[in-house]
Design a protein around this nucleic acid. Sequence first.
DNA 1: ATTATCCCAGACACCGATGTCCGACTTTAG
DNA 2: CTAAAGTCGGACATCGGTGTCTGGGATAAT
Lengths: 209, 209
Amino acid sequence: MAKKTTTPEAPTPKRRRADADRSVAAILDAALEALASDPDSSMSEIARRAGVVRATIYVHFPTRDALLDAVMDYAVGQVAEATREADPERGEPVEALARVLRATWRQLAQFHGLLALNTARLSAEELHRRHLPVLDQLEPLIERGQKQGAFRSDLPVTWLLAVTRSIVHTSSHEIRAGRLADSEAEDVMISTILGAISEAPAVSSLEGR
Amino acid sequence: MAKKTTTPEAPTPKRRRADADRSVAAILDAALEALASDPDSSMSEIARRAGVVRATIYVHFPTRDALLDAVMDYAVGQVAEATREADPERGEPVEALARVLRATWRQLAQFHGLLALNTARLSAEELHRRHLPVLDQLEPLIERGQKQGAFRSDLPVTWLLAVTRSIVHTSSHEIRAGRLADSEAEDVMISTILGAISEAPAVSSLEGR
DNA sequence: ATTATCCCAGACACCGATGTCCGACTTTAG
DNA sequence: CTAAAGTCGGACATCGGTGTCTGGGATAAT
């Protein structure tokens, strides 16, 4: 993941050049863009976007799958960083969650094509494991909210997280479909998420049938 | 769509045989199954499941895309029928919605792979248009709930529907991931959906950014 | 029983995508 | 400046999927 700065211990290649790193970065960015818009983007398409010849990709990533893995980590890393910057530990749970969502939802929405891709490519467990850099930050926030009575305690944390993620993606989908204005999406989304996971008066008419 | 029973007016073929209809049905069922588990299922795979040779599919569906269209309509039709049978017009909105969801959520969950497929294949508008047979039944129910003060009126009906659909799919996804027991999924799902779309005390701490 | 309809089995051409390779050229590090 | 590292441009083999076609055999309608 994190590239070394001046550490003089490189594995095999004696002299690593700067343009190699630039190529890798360009490829990852291009792949992220391309795959987000179409999860079936070809290597040619990605190379084209990266301003690079197709063979160059194979210099850095032995196979398509390897590239997909790298892109996945790259995307998760970006969201994890944005989450960290939004400081999930600070303030009231409800307010903190809203703050984190405002900071990350556009990114998450951008990557929602990737998610579909990886859902097909990886097992559900593997997928979850890869998301940990983000989930590990959100989990304490939700738990804190539960303890303070702000969030529902009758449902597991993992479920509340899943629902949150799901509503974020729904909002981006509705925007794409033209049924939700980009300007109001953020408020609608956050308001809905809070409605879904906040503690609320029990619905009595649920028991029958 | 609906096949005729004894109507003697057939378009071009003078004598339509019964095994032809049987083949079509087998293909549609097989395609539904196959595509639900893997949206990229090949024609060979579908043919294998249908107990039919690949060429036979092309007898009834000129192209892969044509088959996909037919499967889409078939799936939507099934859900629409189950919805109709659950009688969305009857009873209190909250109770009616819960009833309809209990009757359809497993079907919807089964088809969630199809949705991913069609999201990529069709425009968002086209996709929405195809879902109308189901949505047209749910919309009045939601609107009725809004008028009676049971469901949130500060959000558009289309949004509430989208959120509902989204949470249904999330529950099936969480079951697959092993994070939600099949037995409790139904209650968790319905309870969450009602929390998300029901009228609730306004969350005041939302305004201050 | 006859006949049109349908299925099977397999071959075929075609296409696009993946992954490999190589020689010529360009850029970077020392 | 020079040598190593990297990219380019294109060719190449391979693979899997789609769509077409055939002839022979099974099956259902009349």
